[in-house]
Amino acid sequence: MVHQVAVLALDTVIGYDMAIPPQIFVEATDRNGDCLYKVRICGLDRSPVRVASGYTMVPDHDASILAEADTVIIPGTRIEGPRRHGVLPPEIGEALATVPSHARIMSICTGAFVLGAAGILDDRPATTHWAHADEFRELYPKVALNENVLFVDDGDVLTSAGLGAGVDLCLHVIRRDHGTEVANRAARYCVVPPWREGGQSQYIDRHIPDHGTDGTAPTRTWALGRLHEPLDLATLAGHARMSVRTFSRRFRAETGMSPGTWLTRQRIEHARHLLETTDLPVDGVAERAGLGTGASLRQHMHAALGVSPLAYRKTFRAG
């Protein structure tokens, strides 16, 4: 069945954010070329909605379509109550109350403020645009905010960082629903990378001295081609021609995570790709991904994804 996606545009909506879901999800097709998602944009009613970049949009639908949705997405918005006062307007609360209990809820950029005001993010991990992280924390202290990542997947509630990170989140959802092949095909058509390395921290506006070609990026590229090899911190620092301490500090400044965390994440992603695209046994996948044994791979996948390698392969190879 076609997955129903409803995008709720709230005045004043960020036009770029609003346009991402219909563009990305509509390009997700099965092997017969049939669309896997139907995306509709709505307002609280069908009145014109102001767009932050200087025009007005007239939605084809009102909020009644939220009751039919499998996924509801709140794009970035400058709406006063959630953005400035931590208050959810009653009409938005009423609209969100109609969302089915089985539905997935997502936000792009400052759409997270709406979910925060609705209490949906209480005691959950989440992200939003790095430039608004401080005000978000002040308004919604119950949320475990992490502005260093591109998106956060907390199962039935997902949030993305600013603007273009909405593309990353939508592709992640397609990958989660239907596997790498479908997500890569959608990304290729939209001429965007299917997966961006690193997190939002690399975009945060802060003073970092210009080190020319002395950054850790060449070493990260080098490591990605050697995930099956033993790569400890000293080896990575040696390739970068830095001390371990300097390399660790620079690496975290550029990616928002430690070298060990980054390396484990890349190995898990490579293992997922191998599980989806090859018939290698679990031990073979673990070895090629640099995770050692099948037992180690199972432990890492349970921690990161909540499923075993065989369950993951069964789901996504079938998809």
Rank of each mutant, 00 (worst) to 15 (best):
R78I: 02
C42V: 01
L88R: 03
R31Y: 02
T56F: 02
G54M: 06
H132Y: 14
S64Y: 01
V51P: 02
Y37F: 12
Q23G: 15
V58E: 07
D123F: 05
S47K: 14
A69S: 15
L96E: 09
L8T: 11
R46A: 10
E138L: 13
L44H: 03
T128W: 10
A69N: 10
L121N: 07
V39L: 03
I105A: 05
L66K: 10
R124H: 07
I24F: 07
S101H: 12
A19T: 13
H85R: 12
R31W: 04
N148Q: 13
E68P: 04
R84P: 00
V143M: 04
Q4I: 06
D45L: 05
P100C: 11
R137A: 13
E68K: 13
I20H: 12
W130C: 06
I20R: 06
V51K: 00
Q4D: 14
V72F: 03
D30W: 03
A126G: 07
Y55I: 03
P59N: 07
R104G: 02
M106T: 00
G119T: 05
E94H: 10
V72T: 09
L10S: 00
S53V: 12
E147K: 12
A28I: 06
V99M: 11
Q4K: 15
C35Y: 00
V72E: 01
N146R: 13
D45A: 12
A126F: 06
Y16N: 02
A69K: 09
L145R: 03
S101Y: 03
V72C: 06
T71F: 11
T71M: 15
D60W: 02
A144Q: 14
S47Q: 14
G43D: 00
H61C: 10
R31F: 05
T98H: 14
N146S: 13
G119I: 00
V49F: 09
Y37P: 04
E94W: 01
E27A: 14
E80I: 09
